[in-house]
Amino acid sequence: MRLQYRQRHFMPGFGISLGYTVFYLSLLVLIPMSVLGLKAFSLDGQVYLDILRDPRTLAAFKLTFGAAFAGAGINLVFGFIVAWTLVRHPFPGRRMVDALVDLPFALPTAVSGIALTTLFARTGLIGRMLEPLGIQIAFAPAGVIVALTFIGLPFIVRTLQPALEDLDPEYEEAALSLGASRLRTFLTVIFPSLRPALLSGFALALARALGEYGSVVFISGNMPMRTEIVSLLIMGKLEQFDYDGATALAVMTLLLSFMILLFLNLLQWRLGRRTQQGG
């Protein structure tokens, strides 16, 4: 039995790499998280209740999660189009465009926040055109969505690209030649094989958006009850030395995010199994 177990890992160094993984993850993720956990358990339950009852906090939670979902959703559609174009349609300057996609990764978030605000403010290049139409983006909830869409784009495109590259056009051609409509080809041939990549891209963009601070605080206007995000409230509590309140808020954001990500992962796992069984 033991021998069999050993034989499976024909690559050497399993023990050392597992040890390294555990050590590295502990150092980077588990230890910082457990410090937060320890602090969280030492808190009085009243702190959590106070926060849950506070309408300002609830409004911030609603905005943060709502805008993060909206941003990731928008990216899911438009990021897909970008990835599709980049993979399937070679055009001059494609490498340039490809590099542009990574820009939101590299830009300090404060810089992107200020740039977006400059564009969308009442006096900005885009804001000026939208104002007569009665549309306000900067200093309104819509601004938060714009910022979160911006920072989330690379996550969707970069997870979709390899999946699209693996997708052989011959399958689509076969489906089309067998008489399937374009829509049907997309829904039954292309979409199922891209679903795992779409889901994990969505989850990554969502997770990134939930924790965003730098870019949002510039464009949102930070009005209580209207455009305050949870990270700003956490910063505010720290700024006033309310460490307990800040911890409680952080723990609740973390729990909610964790549940959403877990749900997305489970969904992926189930869908994956069904596809395997079905195919």
């Binding site: 400059t118 200093f139 510039f218």
Partner: peptide
Amino acid sequence: NVSVLDSGARASTTTFIQRGI
């Protein structure tokens, strides 16, 4: 009457002077 509550004093100055709000 306040339309923007920036996160810091310098950011407010920018909103007022640079963005003309």
